[in-house]
Amino acid sequence: MKKISLMAASAAMALSFTGLAQAAGTLDSVKERGYVQCGVTTGLPGYSNPDDKGNWTGMDVDVCRAVAAATLGAADKVKYIPLNAKERFTALQSGEIDMLSRVTTWTLTRDGSLGVNFTGVTYYDGQGFLISKKLGVKSALELDGASVCIQAGTTTELNAADYFRENKMTFEPVVFDTSDQTVKGFESGRCDVLTSDQSQLYAMRIKLSNPSNAVVLPEIISKEPLGPLVRQGDDEWFNIVKWSLYAMINAEEMGLTSKNIDKMMTKGNPNIDRFAGKGITSGLGISGDWAYQIVKQVGNYGEAFDRNLGNGSPLKIERGLNALWNKGGLQYAPPMR
């Protein structure tokens, strides 16, 4: 589409004419500008989705908010820039956004060759299949010869090809530009199956005109650790984004929530005091109470999960792999001391 060419062309321009100054000093330019520019999806319930008033909510959005709370002391000082899957890396590389928080899978080649750094994992996901109920398919291994709707520019495209090849099955890929068009293609019957990260399938399912007609197959065919990313070469900013997420996870582990953090701080617990910035120098180059601001304004990881993806949301996704490490999941953050 024209948009991607424009985006890529502008990236080429940016890389051609700008000096190196831009690669470093993201924190300074964020402070000067007064808001964080955060790349998000064009609309995916649970992760980043605008409501009818243009307010963005979702798990990925909360990560942006946490970074804004840490750096600027106000979680709402974020400008959301909706990007489709094809545009996202170019937008980050060219400096159009400060960070990308857009259901992006952490892979070797992306980390190694795109000039970006993944800062952590906000959601451990895996790829699955959404299929119309009336076809009566119970397993992904029965999908030989099926037409598959996929969103362009995702790891999904490669995983699907690998899966069908591995299991000696054929398929017909129908590749759309945005997630909305992919859902429309599936709904109109152009494909038998829609494939994407499993959590997104639940989100897409509630976008269907009749969600009960479609089911998510049990198979998970890939590992999809989703996380935020920043440009390479700015370690200061990399650390801030990384530790903003760690602060949310640590807060959940310590039992700190947006509601009780003020009360908990008065109890004289040394761990909590350090968390709130008392008697510790973080060296991140931001205000000492950054972690307190995150929890106070955005909440801990569990709160964000519950509000956007879990029981407090229409998606009702189980914590599963995303539970804390001491509760049978994988979410683990280095200690804050």
């Binding site: 890529a8 094809k86 080649t109 795109l114 362009a152 530009d177």
Partner: peptide, 9 residues
Amino acid sequence: AGTTLNQTG
């Protein structure tokens, strides 16, 4: 300019 660009970056 779509998929290949995105996969190779």
